[in-house]
Amino acid sequence: MAKKFNQKKGNIFVFLEILSCEGGIQSYVRDIFQAYQDITNSAKPDDSFLELDILLLRDGKDCENPYQSKSLNFYYFKSQSIWLGRLKLATTLLWFLIKKRPQQVFCGHINLAPLVQILCVPLGIPYTVLTYGKEVWKPLPNKYQQALKQATKILTISRYSRDRCCESNHLDPQKFQLLPCMVDGDKFIPGVKPIDLIERYNLQGTKVLMTVARLWSGDPYKGVDVTIRALPAILQFFPEVKYLVIGRGDDQPRLAKLAQDLGVGEKVVFAGFVPTEDLVKHYQVADAYVMPSQEGFGIVYLEAMACGVPVLSGDADGSAEPLQDGRLGWRVPHRNPEAVANACIEILKGEDKRCDGQWLREESLKIFGKVAFTERVRQL
């Protein structure tokens, strides 16, 4: 009688860095790890969930890692020499491919895709490339385009990000699968306006518009300047409005000068950097979340809505997903101060169903909450 062959092949993930820095893609991948842990923790002993080997190029063993477990094995390749780190990662990946013959390799960044392609294709091992946003929105050099074209699948967060990547790099949209971002409804919750923040930012008796964004001069698409330009028109209807801007960067002096030049300097509050764990209280102090931007998705819109805060976004980007094509919020031309002003005035009047905080929270969590995200990961 033939010996029964063990069919439980694992998967391999290859990333630049996940644990040593903060950012949208890092948060997204950590959510994937958490979902996978939840799936394996709830599995029956005989369920054949796959073991994951996770290779990290720029993270070191000294990084705090809450995801290490019996189903998630992490390998670190941080080195003072960039090329030495890449060589160690490449040789380890090749050894794993030959020894373990994984079911699939997930490449966590376009910059690693050519390496994954070179090693996987000759061995007949399928690979998926994870894309997040603007890193694939422009025409890529040929070696990156070829790595995407030879991938079995391309994973991305929104229709918008998929379409821009396809248009710029001549890719087949059928190759893409969507895994939208998620929001933790246990962490982001509605609440009364925190008194300490009202006092800290001098917001007594005000209506608060809020944006969370990096204030970088080379990355002005978040629309903070557009919202500042919209303030004079908003103040005609709601003179008590203040605009709370959370984030830091070298563009802040320009934005502050713009506010002064428009006569609304005292109405704009630059809060600077706010730790992730303090963001919930800041959402709770807001009457509207305003970011007329160009996003690949826009997790901040989900965070605001989970806190019961109405939202405004741009109308030609990935925010169509979290705002459900405008059903849950206002989508306006992202460089149009007049459109931003008109939408903010509507929001502050509070007469639209999209201002119902409890409804906003329920509808956003229904599609983008932890349960829905975990089920998508299970299916993938």
Rank of each mutant, 00 (worst) to 15 (best):
K187Q: 13
K4C: 09
R335F: 10
I195Y: 15
H109K: 09
Y221N: 13
K9A: 05
I228P: 09
L312N: 02
K9G: 04
D172P: 13
Y67R: 03
D31H: 12
L380F: 09
K207N: 08
L171A: 07
S69V: 00
L115C: 07
L178W: 07
R58K: 14
S364L: 09
Q252D: 12
Q252A: 14
E338R: 15
C165E: 01
A151M: 03
A306Q: 02
Y28P: 02
V311A: 14
Q379R: 11
F96L: 13
C355Q: 02
N142Q: 15
G247N: 07
C107Y: 04
V212L: 15
K78D: 07
L380P: 00
Y67C: 02
L323D: 00
Y76D: 08
L360W: 08
Q379N: 08
L255Y: 06
G263E: 15
R101E: 11
K257F: 08
G350I: 05
D196I: 08
D31Y: 04
Q150H: 14
A113S: 13
A271E: 11
P310N: 07
G205S: 03
S313N: 09
F33C: 04
A341W: 05
R86Y: 12
A113M: 08
V136N: 06
P310F: 01
K370H: 13
I195K: 15
A233H: 09
L244N: 03
L112S: 02
A316Q: 14
G185A: 03
D251T: 01
T156E: 10
G318H: 05
Q358K: 11
D251Y: 13
A288Q: 09
Q260C: 15
K370I: 10
A2Q: 15
P114T: 02
L323Y: 00
G205T: 01
I189K: 14
D184T: 01
V136G: 03
N6C: 11
R229Q: 14
P66R: 07
L84P: 00
D261Y: 10
G23V: 00
Q260V: 14
A213E: 09
L57M: 08
K70C: 07
E362P: 03
G124P: 04
F368S: 07
A256H: 07
I198Q: 11
Y67V: 00
L155N: 09
D62T: 11
E338N: 15
E363T: 02
K143L: 15
G205H: 05
W359C: 03
N6Y: 12
I125V: 05
C166A: 03
A372K: 05
F77Q: 05
L50A: 12
V226I: 08
P253R: 03
D46Q: 12
K222C: 04
I18K: 01
G329R: 05
K175P: 04
F49S: 06
I347C: 04
W83K: 13
G218P: 06
S79M: 11
V371N: 11
P322C: 10
M1N: 08
K149H: 09
V129E: 07
L197W: 10
P141C: 12
S69H: 01
R335H: 14
L123Y: 04
A35M: 02
E22R: 01
V290F: 05
G272S: 08
T156F: 03
V241A: 02
E351Q: 15
I110M: 10
I118G: 10
V285E: 11
